[in-house]
Simulated assay, not measured.
Amino acid sequence: MDPIKQAVELARAAEGVHRPATLGGSPLAAEGPSQRSAESPFQEVRLRPDHLEAHRIVAHGTSSPNGRYYDMLRTQVLQEMDKKSWQFLAVTSPTAGCGKTVTSCNLALSISRLPQRSVLLVDLDLRRPTVGKYLGLGDNGGVLSVLEGRAPLSSAVVQANIGPNGILVLPGSVSANSSEWMASQTMGALLQTIKRDFRSRIVIFDLPPMLLGDDVISILPRIDATLLVAGIGSTSVADVKECQKHLRRSPVVRVVVNKATESVGSYYGYY
């Protein structure tokens, strides 16, 4: 199927976002059965705190002392994004193993705890998607089913709740054509649909590591700002300098140095 036809089919499929009667999808693995409420057109799942914390997702409440670091990051990122009226935030890293997905999930959950703030977390790491695994979601086809026209966006998005708060999540899917999808007109159509239908939400995109291919540099022109996650023991100075070359035309709201202060019990430092 050529990219233009894919884009047309994606746009048609996205019309179902506000039509709950047409929604479908497979059950999700979480605490209790998935369901749709009268208030939400999306599949709803309840996240398990023990599963989250086992994967270092700690910003879903105020009880964890490590969550405060993500709250500080949240405040700084939102201040910068609000100042520029930005909606789309990319989270990436130079190489694998830096903690970008942990940062994406924690940042999204931290933002969700703010009054009058809401978040959509999109796993666009089509090489190795792990957002669903870290949050404890099942496989519902994810973003690839939308890109391929097999499902409307509304049936792929999940309402993930914990306590009184929740985030919307578009889980990821593995694709052998990750690079091609990132640069495609179909991806551009998906991003336009997200911008239109989720315009009141901050949208966080968990992207692949920047230096593993051209995925990130292909999609960055369509994103408002970037959060770069480096890892102590995983990232070299040369890696960061190489990323800086690609990020010269993309606003960087923060650089997170992950695992920098593990010896004193916190998950990351940042500057």
Score class of each variant (00 low, 15 high):
residue 195 K to G: 13
residue 153 L to S: 03
residue 152 P to L: 03
residue 154 S to H: 08
residue 188 G to W: 06
residue 144 L to W: 09
residue 208 P to S: 13
residue 196 R to G: 06
residue 200 S to G: 04
residue 199 R to C: 10
residue 160 A to P: 03
residue 149 G to Y: 00
residue 182 M to D: 02
residue 154 S to F: 00
residue 164 P to L: 09
residue 156 A to R: 07
residue 188 G to A: 13
residue 170 L to Q: 02
residue 181 W to R: 00
residue 192 Q to L: 08
residue 167 I to R: 08
residue 149 G to N: 05
residue 209 P to K: 07
residue 195 K to L: 11
residue 156 A to V: 01
residue 198 F to D: 01
residue 180 E to M: 10
residue 156 A to E: 02
residue 196 R to S: 15
residue 201 R to S: 15
residue 165 N to P: 00
residue 161 N to E: 10
residue 183 A to C: 06
residue 200 S to T: 10
residue 144 L to Y: 13
residue 196 R to A: 15
residue 163 G to A: 08
residue 165 N to W: 14
residue 206 D to W: 06
residue 150 R to Y: 01
residue 151 A to V: 03
residue 196 R to L: 11
residue 197 D to A: 12
residue 194 I to Q: 03
residue 204 I to R: 07
residue 181 W to K: 00
residue 175 S to A: 14
residue 179 S to N: 11
residue 167 I to F: 05
residue 175 S to T: 09
residue 153 L to T: 11
residue 189 A to D: 02
residue 150 R to P: 01
residue 169 V to R: 12
residue 153 L to Q: 07
residue 146 V to G: 00
residue 191 L to C: 08
residue 145 S to W: 09
residue 163 G to W: 13
residue 171 P to Y: 14
residue 143 V to T: 05
residue 185 Q to I: 07
residue 184 S to N: 08
residue 185 Q to D: 12
residue 194 I to V: 15
residue 164 P to S: 14
residue 144 L to M: 14
residue 187 M to E: 10
residue 188 G to H: 13
residue 201 R to A: 14
residue 166 G to V: 13
residue 148 E to S: 09
